[in-house]
């Protein structure tokens, strides 16, 4: 299993959320990418859209499957990774970094506390392997 970076918050659906000042950057984990295989299409919301924690905000499609994306916290989408429209393979190459998906201006950052930290996410992944 790939390293799980500390300092991020993780959802059960394998999104990661990173605090960056007042904002939260969101992507999917290396585990999610490994399960998906080659990503061929990333469907993201328009900037300005409001999302609620746990709500579906987009889709990631690989050659064989479709996977839904869930918001780790509520707020306004202030940035969208436009590069992924033409180059979805960036998600495979760099899930933690260049393959980020959206940036949210959260209405309530304490929502992130309800998510898993790196240690809990590692344990969660180990439980999935059974």
């Amino acid at each position: 299993m790939k390293d799980i970076p500390d300092g991020l918050a993780y959802t059960k659906e394998h999104e990661w959320a990173r605090r960056e000042g007042d904002l939260v950057r969101v992507g999917i984990t290396a585990y999610a990418v490994e399960q998906l295989g080659d990503v061929t299409l990333v469907d993201l919301p328009a900037r300005g859209r409001h999302v609620r924690a746990g709500e579906r905000f987009g889709d990631v499609e690989s050659v064989k499957t479709v996977s839904e994306l869930y918001a780790p916290c509520s707020g306004e989408v202030v940035e969208v990774n436009e590069r992924l429209a033409a180059h979805p393979e960036i998600v495979n190459a760099s899930p933690w970094d260049e393959g980020w998906m959206i940036v949210i201006r959260p209405t309530d950052v304490t929502e992130l506390a309800a998510l898993m930290d790196a240690a809990a996410y590692r344990a969660y992944l180990a439980s999935l392997d059974h």
């Binding site: 295989g37 080659d38 061929t40 690989s62 050659v63 064989k64 495979n92």
Partner: peptide, 9 residues
Amino acid sequence: PLHYPDGIV
């Protein structure tokens, strides 16, 4: 085997 480490593409 669905795919090997190279991936489907």
